[in-house]
Design a protein around this nucleic acid. Structure first.
Lengths: 243, 243
DNA sequence: CCAAAAGTGTTTCCGATACACCCATGA
DNA sequence: TCATGGGTGTATCGGAAACACTTTTGG
């Protein structure tokens, strides 16, 4: 959110609302699913934490581009997976004026970035999804919606990929799925190492790089990468992709 | 879209765009998937066909409510399944001014309504999805997106239900899935009567009403209904719902 | 030498699929 | 009586799940 922009004026037959683009940014710390939030410096909800985002500018090419821009300005994160979640348009979401929010889900390889406070020196910080601070506006509801969608998607799409580095081990991938699906019943199915590996490798777009990850007191794990092209083919051909 | 509203004025630090709520309304004529469109009476795109919808009013409780209201005003349809699809926010979507559109998918039991022209006497009409007229704005793109999502959802959710009356036969339901999934490869799987029936009945939320549909030169088909409560339970418990 | 986690072979079992056949009805 | 579509029993096959065992490495 850039301050000190000149004032905008309108006159129209139709009402024009304020519109923001906010992102629910998920990361993975190796054990739990995390969420990137920004501490609010001013009223309303001063001191509470909010989703990265802000008002769409008339020069933003699209809402998605706005979410991307805001995220970069506020946290320095870019080059990530981003996808629309849902709009939130109820009356009373913001005490100042009516605001329509277009919410996005973003998936980041968390360790790839050292989060810095944004341009305006507000603090950005990762929180485990099961231990969130006080949230501003209706962002708690947005996060809940995002979590549901993420869990849903985990069944059909290889989203875990986007939370890891380009090269990853199967157990890293598996622990992500555990973290995402934890409250769900079908936990046990995934927990089996053997079956998880089978499913991933059979899919055809998890590629063995030949490299291995060393440095722990046990067998060196194989490093895999994700073949996006093969995945896209599979996606347009048939279905039944993940777990 | 109600005309003759008083003029709105603003002044704000942030830009405020015009926002519409449009619905991609699907129906089923017993054979093919249909789409409800409205002929445009004025410029731009005069004579082309557009999705039902219009500008969100400041009194609409939400974007979804606005889509619902517009649909009712323009076609008389209400009490239907409606769900958000995606927003479309590119520059240049509307030649007059920048417009952000929140698009919805609606599913209707087509034969339940006799479509009348709306308040403003514009014509509303059903078209088979594979034979659409000239479309206004970027509505062709929106429809394409909606079709993809519908096909996607058909695999995981019992959406076919919403295109039929409260009571329906299994073959009606099956022909809907054929119509939705037609271009897809896994057509053959569904085409088998036996397996389709098995899958539906095993799910637990397709209930035999005990009644039967007579009047054709063959066996009277059983009428089923959809148990929404059981479905919602199944949904929150596990997954793997449909085809 | 042990603990911890990687990696892989194999059996079992259930569910999806395919096929087949009978039934009811109106023309 | 016949064409049409509804309804249902069941054998087969493949893939998911469960289990078990070996391997590697740092402490």
């Amino acid at each position: 959110m850039i301050e000190n922009r000149e004032t905008h004026k309108w006159e129209s037959k139709y009402w024009h609302p304020a519109v923001t683009a906010d992102a629910v940014v998920f990361g993975f710390d190796g054990e739990r699913l995390n969420l990137l939030l920004i501490e609010r410096g001013g009223e309303p909800f001063k001191g509470a934490w909010a989703l990265p985002g802000g008002f769409i500018d008339k020069d933003d090419p699209s809402a998605e581009a706005a979410a991307y821009r805001e995220l970069y300005e506020e946290t320095g994160i870019k080059d990530i997976y981003i996808e629309e979640l849902k709009t939130f348009s109820d009356i009373g979401r913001d005490p100042r004026e009516r605001v329509i929010t277009i919410a996005f889900i973003a998936l980041v390889a968390k360790n790839k970035y050292r989060i810095k406070g944004g341009d305006d020196a507000k603090e950005a910080k990762w929180f485990p999804v099961d231990n969130l601070p006080r949230l501003a506006f209706d962002h708690g509801r947005i996060i809940k919606t995002a979590l549901n969608k993420l869990r849903q998607k985990a069944h059909n799409e290889p989203i875990g990929i986007y939370l890891l580095n380009k090269e990853f081990t199967l157990s890293q991938l598996q622990s992500i799925y555990s973290a995402i699906l934890t409250p769900s019943a079908d936990n046990n199915k995934i927990l089996n190492k053997r079956n998880f590996a089978n499913k991933m490798l059979k899919s055809g777009y998890i590629i063995d790089t030949g490299k291995r990850l060393t440095g722990h007191p046990h067998n060196a794990a194989k490093l895999y990468s994700f073949d996006e092209e093969k995945y896209n083919n599979a996606k347009t051909t048939g279905m039944q992709l993940m777990l």
